[in-house]
Design a protein around this nucleic acid. Structure first.
Lengths: 196, 196
DNA sequence: CGCGACGTTGATTTGCCTCAACGATTGTGG
DNA sequence: CCACAATCGTTGAGGCAAATCAACGTCGCG
């Protein structure tokens, strides 16, 4: 049950057996059923969740009442509202399971304690978030500079697994376009280059 | 000369006199004249820079040869290409001074050493980047879900000082619209609600 | 079995871009 | 110190990518 997260966290830094045990004592397992919520708007996000199995989405509801999907997350990813978590203030976001999911969660207090007792992990988490920051920057660059079609192609290339697992409507929302537009983009692509 | 950065870094964590001195020995002052470059495309970003005085922009050049501005930074902010810095690989970005600027910079090796010797600062920097992440997330949400006009209003509200200091063309680039569009947006706003 | 979610397609609208021209301001070299 | 160039902001005309509104077939789930 812990093997994946252990491997995930020790990718760049040595962590001893004892430290792993400490880590395990600070995290707990959590199951969320399809359509279940890990976080709802208005709550303080009190966790960072590592996904052992399953698929979730993070989104907010815009003025028009539509979902705007910000992130999909599958196995071996983390999901959280970092802003809400790190400042311990209410979130505007929802995190909802798209499939039955199995998570390992750590809460704010335990994360603090863990860093005190295993300083090496503070480094690991700092590097993780630096990496996330760079990824988000790249996504941001695409979103301002590229057309809907380019963004879709990029998405398919980057996350082929998610394209399989998630309905098209939701991918459209993630890309910031309407489902109708995505449908048209796909049919146009298909005419141009009949499958690879 | 160090008073601002000391205050900045000790906002959330206690740092002793001796630790501050260590910090000062690892950073160095740097002056960049208006239109001077702190980073150019192709270089590895080997610094994180704290702005004591001045104003800079970070941008890349898109396929059409246009500047796409990703960040403005003024006094008491940090600027760097985090992706390039943390992975020590070439950057796609430029960082250029919009005014004569005075910076305090720390390079990769010194930052590592500093964290080893003052673990409390690892925490400070982790929190800083978490904060930056949250800010970037918010900006990203706006860019996919909001109209040009909404984004401009948001910008004016959030960074009134920058609106004063930076030409409109550059703000347009930051907002992901053309200067012409921004001009029209402003004139339309002015008709609707003749100043506040 | 029936209802709601999903995907597709068509007609129309719209927000923003592109291209172009022009006046005002800033900065610079002779 | 002036002249000229470059930068900046504005305005107009026309075009295009994607949104909106609407209708319809399919599928899977309760």
């Amino acid at each position: 049950m812990y093997s994946e997260i252990d491997k995930h966290l020790s990718r760049n830094t040595f962590i001893s057996e004892g430290e792993f045990e400490l880590l395990h004592s600070y995290i707990r397992k959590r199951i969320v059923r399809k359509r279940g919520f890990l976080l709802s708007q208005g709550e303080v996000c009190n966790f960072e969740a590592y996904i052992v199995k399953g698929c979730l989405k993070k989104y907010y509801i815009d003025d028009k009442g539509d979902e705007v999907i910000l992130q999909f997350a599958v196995e071996d990813w983390w999901i959280s509202d970092i802003g809400s978590f790190s400042e311990q203030k209410p979130s505007n976001l929802f995190i909802e399971a798209l499939e039955d999911s199995e998570l390992l969660v750590i809460d704010y207090a335990n994360k603090e304690k863990l860093f005190e007792e295993v300083p090496g992990l503070e480094r690991v988490f700092r590097m993780m978030i630096q990496k996330s920051y760079a990824v988000l920057e790249n996504r941001f660059y695409s979103s301002i500079a590229k057309s809907a079609e380019e963004r879709y192609l990029e998405f398919v290339k980057k996350y082929p697994a998610i394209v399989q697992r998630v309905p098209q409507t939701q991918i459209a929302s993630y890309l910031g376009i309407t489902p109708e537009s995505l449908s048209r983009i796909k049919s146009k692509m298909f005419k141009k280059k009949p499958a690879a």
